[in-house]
Nucleic acid binder design. Structure first.
Length: 493
RNA sequence: GGCGGUAUAGCCAAGUAGCAAGGCGGCGGUCUGCAAAACCGCUAUUCGCCGGUGCAAAUCCGGCUGCCGCCUCCA
């Protein structure tokens, strides 16, 4: 059984058969007038998982993710902040890409920007005019919706119903309220490009058709984006593309469910959203990834601290298991391959795929046979990596300061209480030449504290020992005692 | 109003006809000076409500209700 994907075009699960050797993917990315939020990341993560899985299945992939960096909203922001639109968009793009990198989201091959493809946009608009699908009015160019018989089919909307809500803005001079803008004349003071219709800028929608065709050809395999883009954005993309080329535009349309906050959809325009920057400060990349993959991509996903905390605990289980096994060999034939593959092939069912991971972990923990245990651990790591989780890099600077303070407090107390025997036991530890290297000194100090604590425990001074444990725990360092001695672990963020 | 989605344990969440995956939490246990961690075990006779078709339904059909969304900018 091969990969099946839910296609919005047909509203059913279909076998994914690529058109050629290279699978073309276009993701509708951001309109960059505001900071990226969790919803945008979900869309990016869907592309990431799709790309990872397609590559795993042996496909070559060429992926684009666009930035619509010039539109009405960004011009508004320019006026509001008295800052050039290019600076605003650049800032938001950088924030977004940094967040994606931190989240280990596979980079698209190209991140085209509308403002950098004006030439392709103009020629596409011209093509539509030449074919009679578009017309110019006072420097604006509109797409004649009624000329395109299939309009509304994709989003299952009827033209008559759309008419009821349609309006012509006072500034527009459309022939028909349903018509949408392909090219918009610039008002004085607004950014513009020269075109056959005068100074102006692209309308929203046309950039995606122009750029996807430019990089992927007039027909390509997969188009992804948030569910909220089905109408009007993708409906319009299809109309203008098919009208221009007379060819099929996209084979598969994948739409992810939105992210909600307190039960309502996150949205840039209403200000009801959590910026990804804030989220990354609070939770590690792996935790955020797990949080998102736990729910199937087409379902609505509630962003709430409670959910993230749950994901953090769930992630700790995986991390603890992998840490316990340390180095595991790289393998190419993991256990439970069929179950995992079946889940992923079923419209990228990451929820089920993760269940495979957890089943393996439980089995690994029960397993007494060393060889088998190694094999299980290797399989867990294999799937973990395949799903885009990463090895965590520990931050050392902040906790370093904290442990130095704790050590100093503990030494002070030892001196005050004249605990000479304990003090003596540690003076022999003269590893301070290692002070030069912060990465080495950090665990060293913790081990030193654990040794002091060990002495105290031998002397049955549990109150003092517990004090050290408590202080460390406040800094996110948890001490675990076992018959083999004490170990510590860092809190999962 | 039209269209689309969704309703499964305390919470989250898979599951489209054959005795309900997985996670979080909770409870019990092993270990321990205590704790924590880790591990083990238990935790839905039942899938929003009502009716129907099947030997058999969370899964199909009809009706009802709740929630979310699109129809205007949105990932």
């Amino acid at each position: 059984m091969g990969l099946k994907l839910y296609n919005t075009l047909t509203r059913r699960l279909e076998d994914f058969i690529p058109r050629s050797d290279v699978v073309g993917i276009y993701t509708c990315g951001l309109t960059v007038q505001g900071p990226p939020h969790v919803g945008h990341i979900r869309a990016a993560l869907v592309r990431d998982i799709l790309m990872r899985w397609l590559s795993h299945l042996g496909h070559k992939v060429k992926a684009l993710e666009n930035f619509t960096d010039i539109d009405d909203k960004i011009i508004e922001k320019q006026k509001e902040y008295k800052q050039d639109w290019r600076i605003i968009s650049q800032k938001n793009i950088e924030t977004y890409l940094r967040a994606c990198d931190e989240l280990n989201i596979t980079r698209a091959d190209v991140y085209p920007r509308a403002s950098q493809h004006i030439e392709e946009i103009i020629s596409l608009v011209q093509r539509l005019i030449d074919k009679g699908y578009a017309y110019e009015k006072k420097g604006d160019v509109y797409f004649r919706v009624r000329k395109f018989p299939d309009y509304g089919r994709f989003s299952k909307k009827s033209i008559d119903e759309l008419m009821a809500g349609a309006r012509i803005e006072p500034t527009e001079s459309k022939d028909d309220p349903l018509d949408f803008t392909l090219w918009k004349a610039a008002k004085p003071g607004e950014p513009y490009w020269l075109s056959p219709w005068g100074k102006g800028r692209p309308g929203w929608h046309i950039e995606c058709s122009a750029m996807s065709m430019h990089y992927l050809g007039e027909t390509f395999d997969i188009h992804t984006g948030g569910e909220d883009l089905i109408f009007p954005h993708h409906e319009n993309e299809i109309a203008q593309s098919v009208a221009a080329t007379g060819k099929e535009f996209v084979r598969f349309w994948l739409h992810n469910g939105w992210v909600t906050l307190t039960g309502e959809k996150m949205s840039k325009s209403t200000g009801h959203y959590s910026p990804i920057k804030d989220v990354l400060e609070r939770y590690s990349s792996n935790v955020i990834r797990l949080f998102m993959l736990k729910t199937h991509y087409r379902k609505q996903l509630e962003y709430a601290d409670e959910r993230l905390h749950e994901a953090r605990s769930a992630y700790a289980t995986i991390k603890t298991y992998l840490d316990k096994h340390g180095d595991v060999p790289q393998i190419s034939e993991p256990l439970m391959r069929d179950t995992f593959t079946e889940a992923m092939n079923d419209d990228l069912n990451t929820s089920r795929a993760l269940a495979v991971l957890y089943e393996l972990i439980t089995e690994g923990n029960e397993c007494k046979d060393d060889r088998r245990a190694k094999e299980i651990a290797a399989s867990v790591k294999y799937y973990y990596t395949l799903l885009g989780f990463i090895e965590e890099v520990e931050e050392v600077v902040e906790p370093y300061k904290a442990v130095v303070q704790i050590l100093s407090d503990v030494k002070k107390r030892l001196r005050e209480e004249k605990r000479d025997s304990v003090l003596e036991s540690i003076t022999s530890i003269d590893d301070f030449e290692l002070l030069k290297d912060i990465k080495n000194i950090y665990p060293l100090i913790i081990r030193l504290l654990l040794r002091i604590r060990d002495e105290l425990r031998k002397e049955k001074d549990y109150e003092f020992a517990d004090y050290i444990r408590e202080r460390l725990s406040e800094s996110g360092i948890f001490v675990d005692d076992s018959t083999k001695g004490s170990t510590y672990r860092r809190e999962v963020r």
